[in-house]
Computed example of a mutant assay.
Amino acid sequence: MKKTLLAVAALCALTSGAAMAQQQDGKWQVRVRAVHLDSANKDSTGLDLSVNDKVIPELDISYYFTPNFAAELILTYPQKHNVRAGDVKIGSLKHLPPTLLAQYHFTNFGAFKPYVGAGINYTRFSNVDILGGAADVKRNSWGGALQVGFDYALDKNWSLNFDVKKVYIDTNVSAGGVNVGKFKVDPLLVGVGVGYRF
């Protein structure tokens, strides 16, 4: 009897927590994530160009138009990468990649709240120093972005987050003012973090 009562009490506590977790109905949500950036490193220059993978901080701000539909703006600060030709470092550059996504959130799984998103990325390349200035890249890139992830609600405000994005970033590479090909970063971004909805 005592075990049964304990089991019922535990079930009630879990049900109560799940019910409370489902009440995340604020219009705004802010998340911070640690994100692993894994670059595709595809190029048509013949130089076997690549930039290094790294872990970066990420901040996003979401606005919910309805419980299902939201817009998310993803931000970080300019990220520095080493540029290599094969195994040889030939320089470095920074990129700033804000991304805006439209999302659909599934709301019928209790505290588990999966979502999908699609949108657009703008990347600004800066501080380009390749082969001592002998080579350069186009400074602006526009491309698509795809996303899948989920929040796990801890209470009416806080949640844990897991997120995967594919972002399409490329740039033209030139040497002596002559275009020598296109370099595609096209990173896969895998992130974990926390969110606060209000």
Results as ranks from 00 to 15, higher is better:
4 T>R: 11
5 L>F: 13
7 A>V: 06
8 V>D: 11
8 V>E: 13
11 L>E: 12
13 A>K: 02
14 L>A: 01
14 L>N: 00
18 A>M: 11
21 A>P: 01
21 A>Q: 03
26 G>Y: 11
28 W>I: 06
29 Q>V: 04
29 Q>C: 06
29 Q>G: 07
31 R>V: 05
31 R>A: 13
31 R>I: 01
33 R>Q: 11
36 H>S: 11
37 L>M: 09
39 S>W: 03
42 K>F: 02
42 K>Q: 12
43 D>T: 01
43 D>C: 01
43 D>E: 09
48 D>F: 04
48 D>A: 14
51 V>R: 00
52 N>E: 12
54 K>V: 07
56 I>R: 04
56 I>T: 10
57 P>G: 14
57 P>C: 07
57 P>A: 13
57 P>S: 06
58 E>F: 02
59 L>N: 04
63 Y>C: 07
68 N>R: 05
70 A>N: 10
72 E>V: 06
74 I>R: 03
77 Y>G: 12
78 P>M: 09
78 P>L: 05
79 Q>M: 14
79 Q>N: 12
79 Q>C: 02
80 K>V: 02
83 V>P: 01
83 V>T: 06
87 D>W: 03
87 D>G: 13
88 V>N: 08
90 I>H: 09
94 K>T: 12
95 H>M: 12
96 L>H: 11
96 L>E: 08
103 Q>C: 10
104 Y>I: 10
106 F>L: 12
113 K>D: 11
117 G>F: 06
121 N>F: 03
124 R>P: 00
127 N>K: 14
127 N>M: 02
130 I>M: 10
130 I>L: 10
130 I>C: 10
131 L>Q: 12
133 G>T: 05
139 R>M: 04
140 N>W: 06
141 S>Q: 08
149 G>K: 05
149 G>A: 06
149 G>L: 08
150 F>I: 00
151 D>L: 11
153 A>H: 14
154 L>H: 09
156 K>R: 15
159 S>E: 03
160 L>V: 14
169 I>R: 03
170 D>M: 01
170 D>N: 15
173 V>S: 07
176 G>P: 10
179 N>D: 15
179 N>C: 00
179 N>K: 14
180 V>G: 09
180 V>P: 09
180 V>S: 11
186 D>L: 00
187 P>T: 03
189 L>H: 02
190 V>A: 14
191 G>N: 06
193 G>F: 01
193 G>P: 08
196 Y>M: 09
198 F>N: 05
